[in-house]
Design a protein around this nucleic acid. Sequence first.
DNA 1: CGGCCGATCCACT
DNA 2: GTGGATCGGCCGA
Length: 197
Amino acid sequence: MLPRSFYLRSDVIRIARDLLGKYLATRVDGRLSSGMICETEAYAGITDRASHAFGGLRSARTEIMYRLGGTAYVYLCYGVHSLFNVVTNLEGIPDAILIRGIIPAEGVAEMCKRTGKTTLDANAGIGPGKVAKLLGIHYSLSGLDLVDSVKNPSQAIWIEDRGIVIKPSAILTGPRVGVEYAGPDSLLPYRFRIQPE
DNA sequence: CGGCCGATCCACT
DNA sequence: GTGGATCGGCCGA
């Protein structure tokens, strides 16, 4: 399991790149499922117009973003999709990373059940709404701690390092998706993904 | 308290 | 390529 120190670092861009190749895992309803993270987006605290915490906004929802690095921030998008984010940096600094894509690993049968499909195609885990759907992550899980099981009953969500190293040359970088409203910040190269084969 | 809209996905054409 | 689903968060009155 990734240690607290991984998440407490101050460079959210660096952490977003480092998360590529790590394994996001859940145990929901007693069922283990996991996938290798292949796409992420960084959201840089109160100065990033694309961030929910832009301008230092605090609300019942965004309060989670101000917690200690290693906290799960999950919110509802378009009234339909739960999107899973990892909070990073020190307590009080609302940096976060959206997990946009996984390659399914363990629990494929369970993932099929959750999505109502018989098989998973190559794009089954690409898209942030699909990540949460496959892994059984619901926005009610927002605030769980990815490191300290005392704050994460039955350790429902965590991230593992299985020793996979992604070469920098295999990482594609570009602007974030769906943040046109963020003006100049919509152009920031804060999206990272492993080059597909 | 009302209204607008979003870090999306899928079915359908 | 397009539009509908679907609802909580946030803002302005």
